[in-house]
Amino acid sequence: MTGRLRSLLWVVTACVLVVLSVPWFLWGDARTAAGVPIWLWWHIGWMVLASLVFSLFARTDWDRYMGVGDV
């Protein structure tokens, strides 16, 4: 994978993480599961996913964009 494509993927990933942390597609939806609105379950799952993506980024390309190291 070229460096440019890799960078583009990280930027797209970051944007998707930001945009979908609010489940806009569930706007107005009042269904609940186990006593909690399902839009909140989405958010909880999304934040855990964000944490995993962040930790992947921290382990791989963290220094790539700062001009340090030899990644």
């Binding site: 964000a50 944490s51 962040f54 382990r59 963290w62």
Partner: peptide, 8 residues
């Protein structure tokens, strides 16, 4: 790095 990943 660790703080960053644990944040959400």
């Amino acid at each position: 790095k660790r703080s960053f990943a644990l944040w959400p």
